[in-house]
Amino acid sequence: MLKVKNVSKSYGDFKAVDNLSFEVKEGEIFGLLGANGAGKTTTFRMIMNLLTPDKGTITLDNKKIDYDVTDKIGFLTEERSLLLKLTVKELMIYYGTLKSMKKEQIEKNLKIWLKKFKIEDYENKKIKELSKGNKQKVQFISSIIHEPKLLILDEPFSGLDPINVDMFINAINDLKEKGTIIIFSSHQMNNVELFCEKLLILNKGKTILQGSLKDIKNNYDERRILIKADVTKAELLKLNGVKSVIIKGDEIEVNIENKKYAKDIFDYVSKKNNVLKFEVVELSLHEIFTKEVGDVNE
């Protein structure tokens, strides 16, 4: 289990991470979200032992992070960290050996993953000659070649086409099944919703939302109501708790500030003619993220 407990890190007067705490168990995918400069990279760097926290502790299976522990961690950086002059095989041997792997094991694992990603022919090709998508695949393989206990994925899908995204999703799910602890960071919230059971939203180093995806969405007060009925925008705007009304074709989208107002609105709409639809939906993670991060930044 990865335990991040009361961790803080400052650069001079700037507090990059402020009292951060979370835990991720084996086979869990944890989403660490935040706008640029929120403190995600600093957190990853602390987990990778590249930075020492000013305060707090980070442990993997109750062991403090050192070079033996980092051997068990895979890290897919946001900016691609590939040595372009090497061939795919040379790079894997390079990174694999740094993870204390034996050459034979690296070669064996590489063959499996190259086949899985359908790039077997590129084993002896120089990385600089590969396409962006294939470089991304190589980068991904390099972070999992040593079968890590903990895998950090920082923007794993950037630059990938939908087919490759599916390939990555399958691979990540396979690793999850095998019990790998996965920390996932992405600006594409649809992907986060797809994977993460638990997540944490950081803003300017501080935790602003934390918990399971289901709870976060459920506990978030705002709701959206989708209505198909003979009711006007002006009428709806007069009701308590209504923040905005948007007409979308034959459907009306009503945003309410708290789910408690949904019943009153339902009572009002149900008296109208031609009520074909009345659906209360939770906000998407993208909306929650935008509102929370936007609100704090305002």
Binding site: M48, L50, D71, I73, T77, S81, L83, L98, K99
Partner: peptide, 17 residues
């Protein structure tokens, strides 16, 4: 500079001091 500019440095330094 090659290792720094390709960001491989982060991977290397996370495994060796």
């Amino acid at each position: 500079n090659e290792e720094k500019s390709t960001r491989s440095m982060e991977i290397i330094i996370s495994n060796v001091s």
